[in-house]
């Protein structure tokens, strides 16, 4: 059951990036999450620590301890856990690390799957440990997005999409583009989009949502054929908006819808 953990990756995978550990009661859940997040963060060191040493449902102190060491790239380790005792095991394992190793390990209280994917994409983009933690924590509030507003009958996402644009400052720069690729602004394309957005200092929004947050972008649920208004009100924002709009129009290297 441990083939999926580490051995099939070169040991220098993730050098220079924050490492991430997924602790789950289920080995398959942890390994599945590595598989899922690897798709969007192929160069990040993602380590699964799921199940007990003898393959049952549970968490293993020894497996988690080994994973914390394996994930240590020197830039810090962010840990996401499923249920309560996984957090207890992870916290205990961290306490037993050397002082120097322990300093870099941060256990995040966030939804495992959404937070884990967001953390992996942030790490892939070169975020530091606090940036990766913030990305994971953003998953806590992403749950509120799909709720349908009783007044308008529209989800907040739709409401944002159709809301009139607020009084625009003079420097506001916007481009409206259409999603032409099969999967729209979802999964890998969304990750690529967010990674590019994070390379610019300017604040950019897509249909009112933060272009640098994977969960916000994925929450827009922009499918093929949808339009995206990419906006920046920052003085240096034009370059970012153009790069992102060009990326969308390129179709992300995917088949056209």
């Amino acid at each position: 059951m441990h083939e999926a953990r580490g051995e099939n990756r070169p040991s220098d995978t993730g050098a220079g990036r924050v490492g991430i550990v997924f602790v789950s009661h289920s080995a398959r859940l942890a390994e599945g999450l590595v598989e899922l997040a690897s798709q969007m963060a192929p160069a990040t060191r993602l380590i699964a620590a799921g199940g007990t040493a003898d393959g049952r449902i549970g968490t293993s102190f020894d497996a988690v301890s080994a994973a914390l060491r394996e994930a240590n790239t020197g830039r810090g380790v962010v840990v996401l856990c499923d249920l309560g005792s996984a957090i207890l095991i992870a916290a205990t394992a961290r306490d037993f690390l050397d002082d120097e190793e322990r300093e870099g390990v941060y256990i995040v209280d966030a939804p495992l799957v959404e937070g884990g994917v967001a953390a992996a994409v942030a790490a892939e983009g070169g975020a530091d440990r606090l940036g990766v933690v913030a990305a994971a924590e953003s998953a806590r509030t992403s749950w509120t997005a799909p709720a349908v507003s009783a007044e308008s009958g529209k989800s907040p996402t739709e409401a944002v999409m159709t809301a009139p644009v607020e009084a625009a400052p003079d420097i506001r720069y916007a481009r409206t583009v259409t999603l032409i690729n099969v999967s729209g602004l979802h999964a890998r394309p969304a990750a690529e989009f967010v990674r590019l957005a994070n390379t610019f200092p300017a604040k950019v929004t897509v249909n009112g949502k933060d272009a640098k947050s994977l969960l916000s972008i994925m929450g827009l649920a922009l499918v093929a054929g949808a339009t995206a208004e990419i906006v920046s009100a920052d003085a240096s924002g034009q370059e970012a908006v153009d790069a992102l709009a060009d990326l969308v129009e390129s179709g992300f290297g995917e088949e056209r819808a």
């Binding site: 102190f61 005792s85 207890l88 916290a91």
Partner: peptide, 9 residues
Amino acid sequence: STIGGAAGP
């Protein structure tokens, strides 16, 4: 190392 679950830690 051996209990597993919350009781171990």
